[in-house]
Design a protein around this nucleic acid. Structure first.
Lengths: 213, 213
DNA sequence: ATCCGATTGTTACTAGCGGTAACAGGAATA
DNA sequence: TATTCCTGTTACCGCTAGTAACAATCGGAT
């Protein structure tokens, strides 16, 4: 039958696709971001054109690889933000979730965060929501959560989006720095960041011995 | 005399270096990040090997180009943070300074922020403080300012660095998003970010119509 | 005047990248 | 059996960063 035939074919190509993605992930894990298409093809035991038939271009492979982890991370973050505890605890849980993820797989995280933008710049980029790099997607997700749950008055939508992207950027930059320097355990980083979000900068005292003000 | 001879030589090579940097800046302005060494050499009216004699590799040219703008931006930020006003106003002034800078020259800013990391990864990177990408340098600078001026109790050093990198990341991510979408005038973005730092997330009310909590 | 050394510049090349065209074999369908 | 589709290959293109080797030029020392 045509239907059965088609389904079989689809399933096999999808299985192949999954195998290729797993090979790609292994290479990225080993070589970090900037892993070459040649290396990925070799790891999968095939040659380049097959990769291009499956994913179009390197960006396509990147996107396919990205959605997997991004989806998982976004789910985990949403779960943390849905817990039935007070807001501070939920924020700390979300921060910890993110930091634990990047701590567990720094290579993958670097690959996702610094996707080495295309030199041409005139690419199609037809893929919709998922094409956006992880940071922007996280920012938008957090913005919707904030907008859904918190009353922000007039300009609330706008404020929620600024805050969403701002908080994600804070999380990212602090996590990036922390991963490189490892100056303290994760829980303390989480507490410092939550303190910052809780207005620590506004309420702290001036230093007596410091300059001017 | 030897001395005069040497000084002359230094001054001429330094003048050349400056010319080359200006040509590079023109190309980056025109072509965005990922401008090729060939294009830069052509713009300067010379060929590649000269560029490499002056700057070692592309990273060296990037660094040389980066310190100029970074120094200027850091100076402007320090000036904003040194104003004799209250803390909130100084923070808003700093945010506005940064956002005005990236608004005025988005191409340069993109080049500085997303330096297209070297594929090899095993480079020397002997250059010290200035080699660090702009974001990390800004984070460290802000950390020292915070540590100097604000009393943060025990773990104060650590907390200052976390906050420095976190705030810079927030500024960067929000600015990046804002540059792309332009959802509001700059002053409103500044206010939203300052509100976030002033504990807006902690003090806002839950939404009545929102889910659970 | 002449030679020397350092500096500026060139051409021509390597190795590797992303990406593609053209072709070779195998399995199902008519 | 002949057709068609899919999988896989080799061999290439144009581009990049980076380098080796050679030519020209200019200032100073003999």
């Amino acid at each position: 039958m045509e239907t059965t035939h088609r389904e079989d074919r689809l399933s096999t190509t999808e299985r192949r696709r999954k195998e290729l993605l797993e090979a790609a992930e292994r290479v990225v894990l080993r070589d970090g971001p900037g892993a070459s298409m040649n290396a990925i093809a070799a790891e999968a035991g095939i040659t380049k054109p097959i990769l291009y038939r499956h994913f179009g271009d390197k960006g396509g492979l990147y996107r396919a690889l990205a959605v997997r982890h991004t989806d998982a991370l976004v789910d985990a973050l949403r779960a943390a933000l849905d817990a039935p505890t007070d807001r501070r605890e939920r924020v700390e849980a979300a921060l910890d979730t993110y930091l634990a993820a990047i701590e567990a797989r720094p290579q993958v995280y670097r690959f996702l965060m610094h996707p080495a933008e295309d030199p041409g710049g005139d690419r199609g980029f037809d893929v919709g929501q998922h094409a956006a790099p992880l940071l922007r997607r996280l920012g938008e997700e957090l913005a919707t959560v904030v907008a859904e749950r918190i009353e922000l008055g007039p300009e609330g939508e706008e404020r929620a989006r600024v805050w969403g992207h701002g908080i994600v950027g804070m999380m990212h930059a602090a996590g990036d720095w922390w991963l490189r320097e490892r100056p303290c355990p994760r829980e303390r980083l989480v507490r410092h960041l939550a303190d910052l979000l809780w207005g620590g900068l506004a309420t702290a005292e001036d230093r007596a011995d410091g300059p001017g003000l």
